[in-house]
Structures are given as structure tokens and as C-alpha cells.
């Protein structure tokens, strides 16, 4: 699943560590999310969307049946 975390984070001049602290996760989790190596849980997706002030659908791009 693709996401706009890196794009939005850079646009708002937020560091990975600052975002990690705000979402109560490790910086490694932010790196994995940005690289598309890890898919966020619903809770984390919700927190991240709230942080950027957008909806989950705007932040995460679901590309069909990728997990099947």
C-alpha cells in the first residue's frame, strides 16, 4: 500500500523523529512506512491522518487486492 507520509512530512518540514514522537512509534517504523515496507495498522493510520489533518483515504492509497 502506497502512502503520502514522506511527501506530507517534507512539505511540513517535520523530521522523521518528530513524526515518530508525535505518533508514539520508533523512527524505524516511520522509515519502513515511507519506504512502503510496512503497512500501518488502522490505529496508526488514523493517528497519522489526524497528524496531517487529512483522511486515511487521502494519506494511504489502496491498490486493490495486494495482500491476497
Amino acid at each position: 500500500m502506497k502512502n503520502k507520509i514522506q511527501e506530507l512530512r517534507r512539505a511540513r518540514k517535520v523530521t522523521q523523529q518528530e513524526l515518530a514522537d508525535a505518533l508514539s512509534v520508533t523512527r524505524q517504523t516511520i522509515i519502513s512506512l515511507e519506504n512502503g515496507k510496512y503497512n500501518a495498522s488502522l490505529t496508526l493510520a488514523h493517528k497519522a491522518a489526524q497528524f496531517f489533518g487529512i483522511t486515511i483515504e487521502e494519506l494511504f492509497i489502496f491498490e486493490g487486492e495486494e495482500n491476497l
Binding site: A20, D21, S24, Q28, T29, Y38
Partner: peptide
């Protein structure tokens, strides 16, 4: 410590 223990990627 809290972040390290509750981080969902670490748990996964």
C-alpha cells in the same frame, strides 16, 4: 521504553 515496547512494527 514505552515507545519501544508498544511500537506496532516491533510487535509485528
Amino acid at each position: 521504553m514505552y515507545i519501544a515496547e508498544t511500537d506496532e512494527r516491533n510487535i509485528a
